[in-house]
Amino acid sequence: MRISPKKSQIIAKTLIWAVAVIVILLLIFIMAYILVKGLPTLSWQFLSEVPRDMGRSGGILSTIVSTLLVTVVAVVVATPLGVGTAFYLTEYTREGRVTRIIRFCAGALAAIPSIVYGLFGFIFFVIYLKLGWSVISGGLTLGVMILPTIIRTSEDAIRAVHPMYRDVSYSLGGTKWQTIVGAVAPSALPGIITGVILGIGRCVAETAAVILTAGSALRMPTSLFSPARTMAVHFYILAREGISMERAYGTAALLIVFILIINVAANILLNKFVAKGR
């Protein structure tokens, strides 16, 4: 029996709608699963006290501080490099062998698994540069890891700036540098910031690369050279070693809340940018 085109259209459309609905329900289910079990644990005390007894009691303040420090180091390192590379690719060169090589490298960096970044960070920053398991080793490793994200989003943002902006600046006698700083960068800024925010999200979520480079010491980090345990690593250790499921869920819920805020912020910025650019 042949199915008529009209019927197959209805079947396909229903099926595709169903798949999309299932995916969204799955997302809601995963988030709700963690939030429902974890949010009750979140209290001011949980957020403001350092962990005691391996994390069985007390809060998670030191892991929040560690996450922030590692992320700040990563962003401070990766933003200038990433944005600079994006400006080079868009403003300073024509498509050719050099851009192809740089793009290939950025693509390759984006594809490298985080555990391999962990291996590299361990052998290069921790051992070879003798930085030890520390905030700085973890931050530098994550900085390298988020570099391709920042390059790609910045490049898209810069390309989306209307050519008229550049033409006007040049026609007024502006040099290339003046054009970039005065005309291109300000209109590309929301897009660039979106890239940085997405990078922050990856840093907060990362486990494999930080556990090998920042370590897993629970003490409050006192300098860039102290070992640190980020929230994601803390959650992993609590859950894997069965130290405290309640606290594991609590930490996971806080991670999810962070990621939600980061994603919503990135989306709002991007929508504003798109609305302004077109």
Binding site: L27, I30, M31, I34, G201, V204, A205, E206, T207, A208, A232, F235, Y236, A239, A248, A252, L255, I256, I259, L260, I262, N263
Partner: peptide
């Protein structure tokens, strides 16, 4: 957003 959820959370 699925891409932003930490991989440890998926694992858990």
């Amino acid at each position: 957003l699925l891409a932003g959820i930490p991989s440890v959370v998926y694992g858990f």
